[in-house]
C-alpha cells in the first residue's frame, strides 16, 4: 500500500511519496518515482491500484502538456486540479473506473500562492493545508494537526515531514523504507534529499 504526504508552507508546497513498488507481499522495486511533474509549477503524487496509477498519471501529464503547447501558457493549479477531478469523477461512473488517489501541489504564478489539493478516486476534491493518502494518513494527519504551520520556512516544513515519516517507520507494520520528496515554489519544481 502506497503512502503519500503533502504540506504547504510560506511560498512552497512539499510533496512526499514512498518509492516501493510491490506485488502482493513482495517488493519488486525500491526506487519508483510516484510524483509526476505536470507543469513548471505543478506536482502530482499518485497512489492506488497498480497499473491504473501510472496510466492515469501519464494521461493527465500529456493532456496538460498539450494545453501548454496549444495556448503557450500552462493551466493554473486550480484549473488543472478541477480538470483532473472531473476526469476521475467521469471515470467513476464509467465501465472501468480508475482507482487513483492524488495529492496535487502547485504554485500559482499569477497570485503568488502555494496551493494543495487532496483528491481521491471518487473525484472528491478539497483544498487543504496538508494532506495524506494510504495507511500513513492515520499518523500524518494527527501529527500535522499539531505541528503544521502554513507560515513555516522550508527547513521547518521538512522537519514536520520528517516527523511523519519517522512515525510511520516506527508504528506501521508494513512501513516502506525510502521516500522521494519534491518541492514546488516560485522557482518551479525540484527534488530534495531528506
Amino acid at each position: 500500500m502506497d503512502i503519500s504526504f503533502a504540506l504547504t508552507g510560506k511560498g512552497y508546497v512539499l510533496v512526499a511519496a514512498d518509492t516501493t513498488a510491490a506485488r502482493s507481499i513482495i517488493k519488486m522495486k525500491s526506487d519508483e518515482d510516484k510524483i509526476k511533474v505536470l507543469s513548471p509549477h505543478l506536482l502530482m503524487a499518485f497512489s492506488g491500484e497498480p497499473g491504473d496509477t501510472v496510466n492515469f498519471a501519464e494521461y493527465v501529464e500529456r493532456n496538460l502538456r498539450l494545453y501548454h503547447i496549444r495556448h503557450t501558457y500552462p493551466l493554473r493549479p486550480a484549473s488543472a486540479a478541477s480538470w483532473i477531478r472531473r476526469s476521475l469523477a467521469e471515470s467513476l461512473r464509467s465501465r472501468s473506473p480508475y482507482s487513483v488517489n492524488l495529492l496535487l501541489g502547485g504554485y500559482d504564478t499569477a497570485t503568488h500562492t502555494p496551493e494543495l489539493y487532496w483528491v481521491d478516486y471518487l473525484g472528491t476534491m478539497t483544498s487543504v493545508p496538508f494532506g495524506a493518502h494510504g495507511y500513513g494518513s492515520y499518523f500524518a494527519l494527527s501529527l500535522l494537526d499539531r505541528y503544521h504551520d502554513p507560515e513555516a520556512g522550508l527547513e521547518e516544513g521538512l522537519a514536520a515531514l520528517r516527523r511523519c515519516i519517522d512515525e510511520v517507520s516506527k508504528r506501521l507494520v508494513v512501513s516502506p523504507g525510502k521516500y522521494k520528496v519534491k518541492v514546488v515554489d516560485k522557482d518551479g519544481v525540484r527534488e530534495i534529499e531528506l
Binding site: W118, T124, T126, V128, G131, S137, L141
Partner: peptide, 13 residues
Amino acid sequence: RLGNQSLGISSNF
C-alpha cells in the same frame, strides 16, 4: 467537515 468515513480530511469544505 469533509471526511472519509470516520477519518476527517478537511475542515473547510
